[in-house]
Amino acid sequence: MKERLHALRENVLDLLQEVITEQQLNDLRIKFLGKKGELTEILRGMGSLSAEERPIIGQVANEVRGSIENIINEKQEAFVRAQTEHRLQAELIDVTLPGRKLTSGAIHPLNKVIQEIEDVFIGMGYQVAEGPEVESDYYNFEALNLPKNHPARDMQDSFYITEDILMRTQTSPVQVRTMELMKGEVPLKVICPGRVYRRDDDDATHSFMFHQIEGLVIDKNIRMSDLKGTLLQFVNEMFGPHMQIRLRPSFFPFTEPSAEVDVTCVQCAGKGCRMCKQTGWLEILGCGMVHPRVLEMGGYDPEVYSGFAFGMGVERIALLKYGIDDIRHFYTNDVRFLQQFDRM
C-alpha cells in the first residue's frame, strides 16, 4: 500500500508538470484527490490493514495528499496571478480623454460685482436696502435737493412716465426712503444696489439702463474723515491692500462737501498707462457729506446728526475689474461672454 501511495505521488507530480490550463489542474485535483479519486480509492483498502500498520500508512497517505495539494495550490495561485495580470492589462483606459463635468453656469458679472460689494459692506456693518425702479419725482429729485426747476431734471435726461413718475435716475431715492423708514433712528448704515435709467444713446461706455450701488451712513458726529476711512477700507478689500484713494472736490446737489474718488489704477498700479491716461488714477466713485436739506427732508436734524453718502456705477467697476471693453456685453447676454464668469 505504501508503494502504491508513493507511485501515485510520482505519477501525479509528473502529470502536474504538464498542466497548462486551470481546467487541467482542476481535472487532476478531482481525478486524484476528489471523493471518487484515486487517493480515496487506495485509502479505502485501509480497513484491511492491521492496527499497527494503519497509523503508519495513514501518515504516509497524509504526506502524499499534502505534497500533491501544495503543488496544486501553488499552481492555482499562479493561474490567479496570471489571470489578474491579464485582466489589468486588458482594462487599460486612456486617462487623457475628458471626464464628465458637473454642469456649471455663471452668475452675471454685474451681480457678481454687486454681491462682492455687498459682502464687503455687510462685513462693515451695513444693511442692504432696495427700492422701486419706477419712482416718484419727489424721492428721485425733490428730497435730494434738486428742486423742480433744476436743470438736471430735464425731460431730455430722464425717462418720465407721468409728470410725477419716472424711472429712477439714481439709487439715491432708496436712501431717502430708508431715512423715512428709520424715523430718525441712528446709526443708519445702508447700501442700496439697483438698476437706474438715464436717456443716453448706447455706445461702448454708455447705456440707458445701468446699475449703481450707493451707501449712506447717518449718526451723530459722522465726519468727512470717516468717509475717507470707509472708502479706503472698501477699496482695499475690493481691489487689494495696496490700493490708495484720492478725493477731488466735486459737486452733487445732495452732498456737501462733495468729492470724486480716484483709486490707484488697477492696470499699472499707479505708474501711468493708457487705461488711466497716464495719471495713475481711475475715477470710480462720487461721495460727500449728506446735504443738510437732504437730512432735514429725511427727518434728521442737521444740527444734531451728520452723515456721508457715496455712489458708484457697477458697470464701471466690472469693466475695470474684468477688463471688459464694451458695456453692451452686459445686456446682450452672449453665452460665450457669460460663461467666462463661472469661476470664483
Binding site: E118, F121, I122, G123, M124, G125, Y126, Q127, V128, P187, K189, V217, D219, K220, N221, I222, R223, M224, S225, D226, K228, G229, T230, L232, Q233, R246, L247, R248, P249, E256, P257, S258, A259
Partner: peptide, 28 residues
Amino acid sequence: IEEVARMYGYDNIPTTPIEGATTPGHLT
C-alpha cells in the same frame, strides 16, 4: 465749509474709522 475743505486740500483731511456703536450687517 466745502470752500474751506477744498482750499485746505482733501488730501490733508485725515482718514479715520467711524466712532460709535457697531452695527450688525446682514441680508434680508
